[in-house]
């Protein structure tokens, strides 16, 4: 089961003079989750549009489940599901009818279509709203209906374009669990995100895009080692406390930088946070504020740019 389900080779896309994508290559094995990380305008959506046959590439080639996205579009489309940034549901139809419509278009019989719609509505906690017009749905419900719509055909490859942007924390967590379950069941997932923690949690491999180019790729651990580190920040009450704290933290082998009343030190493991706290405590210092900061996408970019 190590066949490549997503295979993009040197894909480019030009819009006039603008290189939206410039020689991008990515791969994903069956059942894996590929995270595409990048800011707005990095080219994430353009790559998804090419891989889902919505846009022809200007150069390079791409295969989904072994089928060429340009020459075998129909084969590709019958094996993929797509959830874009904006919910693609028919607002004038009920949630149930939306899903039946997709199932019928995919070739399900009337009975199969209703069955599949009911199953998905239940799975996505939409049974109670099933008969209501999608127009009346909340943002989170619309997203769930949209995702359900992309799963009607049990796609082998699922594309999720920023699936959690704009969702509240609970809905976000629910979305993460759904993606994890799909991957566990053998669905190959490509998801784009602007959040490192999301890619970190869900993706087996992460590709970082910037201005249409791949600037880094690897597993989450590889990327972090290459990129950013966590930092501990300690804010103290007085300049004299800062001096003592500097000596104490230096003494335990960490090398903080001072800015005003705040010490910032890169750490490699979360137990280093405990080390810092203990060093302060041993010297009778009480921190005004103390925190552990995860590397952000900005850190990734800054580091990559610096290299």
């Amino acid at each position: 089961m190590s066949e490549l389900m997503i295979e993009a080779t040197d894909v480019s896309k030009k819009f006039g003079d603008v290189h939206a994508l410039d020689g991008v290559s990515v791969t994903a094995k069956r059942g894996s989750v590929l995270g595409l990380l990048g800011h707005n305008g990095a080219g994430k959506t353009t790559l998804i549009n090419i891989l889902t046959t919505m846009l022809p590439p200007s150069g390079g080639s791409a295969k989904i489940a072994g089928f060429d996205v340009v020459r075998q579009g129909h084969e590709v489309r019958s094996r993929i599901g797509l959830t874009g940034q904006f919910a693609a549901v028919d607002e004038q139809l009920s949630g149930h009818d939306n899903l039946v419509l997709i199932a019928r278009l995919l070739g399900a019989s009337r009975n199969q279509a209703h069955q599949r719609a009911d199953d998905l509505l239940e799975q996505f906690d939409l049974t109670e709203a099933a008969k209501r017009n999608a127009k009346t749905y909340s943002g989170g419900m619309r997203r769930r209906l949209d995702l359900a719509a992309s799963l009607v055909g049990r796609p082998e490859v699922l594309f999720l374009d920023e699936p959690t942007t704009g969702l509240d924390p609970a809905s976000r967590l629910a979305m993460w669990e759904i993606v994890e379950k799909l991957a566990a069941d053998g669905t190959t997932v490509l998801l784009t995100t602007q959040y490192l923690d999301e890619a970190d949690r869900l993706a087996d491999t992460i590709t970082v895009l910037s201005k249409g180019k791949v600037v880094a790729s690897g597993t989450s651990a590889e990327l972090k080692a290459q990129v950013g580190q966590r930092t501990v920040t300690v804010t103290l009450d007085s300049a004299s406390d800062v001096d003592i704290a500097m000596k104490a933290v230096n003494a335990v082998g960490l090398h903080p930088v001072v800015e005003g009343l705040t010490l910032t030190t890169p750490v490699s493991a979360s137990r280093d946070l405990a080390t810092v706290v203990r060093a302060l405590d041993d010297n009778g210092l009480e921190a005004h504020e103390i925190g552990l900061k995860e590397p952000t996408l900005d850190d990734v970019y800054l580091t990559l740019a610096a290299n």
Binding site: M54, R77, G81, G84, A88, I102, L105, L106
Partner: peptide
Amino acid sequence: GVLARFRSLP
């Protein structure tokens, strides 16, 4: 957005 959905279907 409905047509975007249809376009991703076979």
